[in-house]
């Protein structure tokens, strides 16, 4: 219950003390999982593309298995995925609560999403460029490292920006199962205890973070795009 005498806004300790910690937790779990996702997603994306029928090392079986795993990962709603893989989270992180533990389900949820975006960017690299490198006597590793990835980089950066924003969204959901962060604060104070000021402050912070990520992502994508 809430009474008119309760301190609000900048007199509310939930906002002055609780929110900075929650913001830190949100950033920590988003950035932590984004870093791991960037590496694993590029790896899986390259495997998906290169093993595809039109890729540089067609591997139909590997491609189909990997594609199926990625599709399963993408079709599970994050809330369900998060709960379903709790044993894996405990195994890797040693716990299932706190932002460190949340990095595990966030990464598992984001890698298939980002991998597909990477695959799409790689597919857009013109086959003529790949052929030109092949004709120079380039190995498949040369083609991947010197042609496919650098040429697809603007698209991959844009994909990573989208993925990080999705991760921030997922991280709010992580609060529901003890992950902490802005989502948890907004839910337990703003929603359950009717502290509208906390809810608004949490939402504003999330909007600012997402805007910043988008602006930075766009800048980087433009800087690496020489087309």
């Amino acid at each position: 219950m809430r009474f008119g005498t309760d301190p609000t806004w900048f007199d509310n300790p939930v906002i002055t003390d609780g929110l900075p910690t929650a913001l830190w937790e949100t950033l920590a779990m988003s950035i932590g999982s984004a870093l791991i996702t960037a590496v694993l997603g590029v790896l899986v994306g390259v495997l998906l593309h290169n093993s595809s029928p039109g890729g540089i090392t067609p591997q139909p079986t590997l491609n189909r298995v990997l594609g199926a795993v990625v599709n399963v990962g993408r079709s599970l709603p994050f809330l369900i995925l998060m709960i379903a893989i709790i044993p894996i989270t405990r195994f890797i992180a040693g716990t299932t609560i706190g932002w460190r533990a949340m990095v595990v389900p966030l990464t598992v949820g984001a890698v298939p999403f980002f991998a597909r975006l990477v695959e799409t960017s790689l597919r857009e690299v013109s086959s003529g460029k790949v052929e030109a490198a092949t004709m120079m006597g380039a190995t498949r590793w040369d083609v991947t490292r010197k042609v496919l990835l650098p040429e697809a980089l603007p698209g991959i950066v844009a994909g990573l920006t989208t993925t990080v924003i999705a991760l921030i969204g997922y991280s709010a959901m992580a609060g529901a199962v003890g992950g902490g962060g802005l989502g948890a604060t907004a839910m337990s104070y703003g929603y359950n205890r009717f502290q509208t000021d906390v809810m608004i402050a949490a939402v504003v912070l999330l909007v600012i973070v997402v805007q910043l990520v988008q602006v930075v992502g766009d800048r980087v994508a433009r800087a690496v795009d020489h087309r």
Binding site: K129, T134, E151, H226, R227
Partner: peptide, 19 residues
């Protein structure tokens, strides 16, 4: 791959890397 280096290929659309 070594034999391919005996050829230099010029393409219709140059096929240069934008990066």
């Amino acid at each position: 791959r070594a034999a391919r280096r005996r050829f230099g290929v010029v393409y219709q659309h140059a096929n240069l890397l934008d990066s």
